[in-house]
């Protein structure tokens, strides 16, 4: 059983994990996109991002609209910024929307998930690519690296980003994977209840490209749980083969304090429990004792399985010798 999962996941990783450099030929990508008659929308969800939004727009418009017409639409969907995010975005040519103005008959909710969800209604593309607006080392790869697997392979429906590949050095391998919440919360949860999903190296990354036919069929938590719920729901409806993931190298953004990560984890946990209950995984699952992490060896990603068996002793009072000694 374990061996089966290991080889299945390794096969999936070998087949569905890319590095953005494989897609450097934008001309070819644009030609194939045209041939496949696909349209692509880029959605940048924002809340007070005036410092980084201008640069993202300049780079995406120059490289992926003017030079290589890969993106058909760039939209900024804002949660109600206090700063000049929308003004800067408009100035650099994005279509700008306030999330609360989209589907105005619905009660407005405030959160990133709301913006992502409303993008499905507002934007026109067959593929929507979501990129966070707080990336300071922005580069066109953040978009083409994610949409390319969807253009090249029809069966792929959902492409996730991952970052920060630690390089092997002096013959050693270094652990690879996600941020703190991923490694402490999500990976252990997935290892226990959805072992297949541990093949996604960074389940919480905020950058992904998805086909409309998938987006319109899944629910969107408004807050922190949106990425986790997407993985579980898409996996449940379409299976692991619907996913691909692309290494986008380094992503520079502000580091969050531990307290903020606590809030995030609490939101994720709520989303997770809701889904796990609905799918009955708590009852069905034999508890796994393998924690599935990743390590990088040069260009290869390998699973790193750690058996962690939490054995227990009963209360001492149940032990006969104890009762005799203390006359209980």
């Amino acid at each position: 059983m374990t061996e089966d999962i290991v080889s299945k996941l390794q096969n999936w990783i070998d087949k569905n994990t890319y590095h953005h450099s494989e897609f450097w030929d934008l001309k070819k990508l644009v030609e194939l996109k045209k041939k496949n008659n696909l349209t692509i929308s880029l959605c940048l969800p924002t809340l007070n991002e005036e410092k980084t939004i201008g640069k993202e727009l300049i780079i995406f418009r120059s490289e992926l609209v003017e030079r290589y017409p890969l993106i058909d639409e760039i939209a900024v969907i804002d949660s109600g910024s206090d700063d000049n995010t929308l003004e800067v975005a408009k100035n650099f040519g994005a279509d700008t929307y306030l999330a609360s103005d989209i589907l105005p008959n619905l009660e407005p909710k405030r959160g990133k998930g709301e913006n992502l969800w409303k993008a499905i209604y507002q934007l026109k593309g067959d593929i929507i690519v979501y990129v966070d607006a707080d990336i300071s080392n922005i580069h066109p790869r953040f978009v083409y690296g994610l949409v390319a697997p969807l253009i090249y392979r029809e069966e792929v429906k959902y492409v996730k980003a991952f970052y920060d590949r630690p390089l092997a050095f002096s013959g050693n391998v270094r652990p690879s994977g996600g941020g703190r919440v991923t490694e402490i919360l999500v990976r252990p949860l997935f290892s226990l209840f959805f072992p297949d999903l541990t093949a996604i190296i960074q389940p919480l990354s905020g950058e992904y490209a998805v086909r409309r036919e998938v987006l319109e069929q899944i629910a969107f938590p408004i807050g922190y749980g949106v990425e986790t719920s997407h993985l579980i729901d898409v996996y449940h409806k379409f299976g692991l083969e619907a996913f691909a993931q692309t290494d986008l190298d380094k992503r520079v953004h502000e580091n969050k304090p531990t307290q903020a990560l606590g809030k995030m984890s609490f939101g994720i946990l709520q989303t997770f429990i809701k889904r796990a209950k609905a799918l009955g995984v708590f009852e069905k699952a034999e508890h796994e004792t393998l924690l599935r992490q990743f390590q990088a060896k040069r260009d290869q990603y390998e699973q790193n399985l750690i058996e962690i068996i939490e054995e227990e002793r009963p209360p001492m009072i149940e032990i006969e010798e104890y009762r005799k000694k203390f006359k209980k």
Binding site: K55, L57, I58, I59, R61, S62, E63, V65, E66, R67, F92, G93, N137, H139
Partner: peptide, 14 residues
């Protein structure tokens, strides 16, 4: 050509 020029500027400058 604003975007083309400024994108080059940002990418070179970084």
């Amino acid at each position: 050509y604003r975007e083309v020029l400024l994108a080059n500027l940002v990418m070179i400058g970084e």
